[in-house]
């Protein structure tokens, strides 16, 4: 044990994943008392680059890495703190995550499962090169870990979503779980609007933003492998369901992914809206997807073709 105490009033099982901090999520998802942190805050591994931008550093650089147990199973874990610098990949945060995954590759005695609690806008611009390169290193390490038989599961449901390098990182993992509030993509709506104009993407239109990048659409089109309720128990259950039988990282898997992505492009390439895509998927009342509760969504999603696959 690191002996690190954290606030625990918000980590009851029904607490919102979206609203929780990264540490609360770890406490909420792992078996009680099982979390052991590597390079904990007391070691003060901070970014040396933020001060020149007059920005405060954090004692963990917004990246918490360690190990714990999930329903009795040993797992390695990494969690991004989306409230600190948008959970961004940077020199320290990226190095910690890279170290964790490389340790799993090098030491077969370490747990054969890694949970990535992603909550990140992508690369930290104040450390842009280090952050970008960290993502590249992490993506490479993830596929090497997968080749070594490690299941790498991404959990997406935090306030910063998983964009930019975090979006690519998620799609490099063996599996992805996402909640209704989870958002997954590359370029965020604000950046598209700034660069391409409001007629391309109105970032103020919350319903539009949600339909394009949100968890339900991602799950329906096979961009995520499990749909989690926005609670600690919800993500715990989703993670457990995804840890077993991850797709192998091999030619057959990537050929299947090629086919899957080409098919998606052919099927939805002309769609103007996500609702149109959901209609093509055979959902009787696609307009209703937005407002139904989680149980109703899971029920109508159950029959959708192509949603469950090993092509990742």
């Amino acid at each position: 044990m690191t002996g690190m105490m954290i606030r625990n009033e918000a980590t009851v099982a029904s607490a919102s994943w979206f609203l929780a901090s990264a540490r609360e999520r770890l406490t909420g998802i792992l078996d009680p008392g099982s979390f052991v942190e590597f390079l904990p805050p007391s070691e003060r591994v901070r970014s040396p680059h933020l001060a020149q931008f007059d920005l405060p550093a954090a004692f963990d650089d917004g990246m918490i890495v360690g190990r714990g147990r999930l329903d009795g199973r040993d797992v390695l874990v990494a969690a991004q703190e989306g409230q600190f610098m948008g959970g961004t990949f940077a020199e320290v945060s990226g190095g910690k995550l890279l170290g964790l995954i490389r340790a799993a590759i090098a030491d077969p005695d370490l747990p054969r499962s890694i949970l990535l609690l992603l909550d990140s806008g992508g690369v930290r611009l104040q450390e842009a090169n280090a952050g970008e390169l960290a993502v590249a290193e992490v993506m490479r390490a993830i596929v090497e870990a997968r080749s070594a038989g490690v299941a790498v599961v991404a959990l997406v449901g935090g306030r910063a979503g998983a964009f930019g390098g975090a979006g690519l990182t998620a799609a490099t993992c063996s599996r992805i779980a996402i909640s209704e509030q989870g958002r997954l993509g590359v370029t965020g709506p604000e950046v598209i609007e700034t660069n391409q104009g409001v007629e391309e993407f109105d970032s103020q239109d919350k319903a539009l933003v949600w339909s394009v990048t949100g968890g339900r659409s991602r799950r329906l089109i096979g961009g995520a492998d499990a749909y989690a309720e926005d609670t600690m128990t919800g993500f715990r259950a989703a993670a457990l369901a995804l840890l077993d039988s991850p797709p192998p990282f091999d030619l057959l898997t990537l050929q299947a992914e090629q086919e899957r992505l080409a098919e998606r492009h052919a099927l939805f390439g002309a769609c103007e809206s996500a609702v149109e895509m959901w209609g093509i998927l055979g959902i009787a009342d696609p307009e209703a997807v937005r407002d139904m509760d989680d149980a109703a969504f899971v029920a109508i999603a159950a029959g959708v073709k192509g949603m469950d696959h090993d092509a990742r």
Partner: peptide
């Protein structure tokens, strides 16, 4: 592109 899952 984002709607179709460019990240994937």
């Amino acid at each position: 592109d984002e709607m179709l899952g460019l990240n994937e």
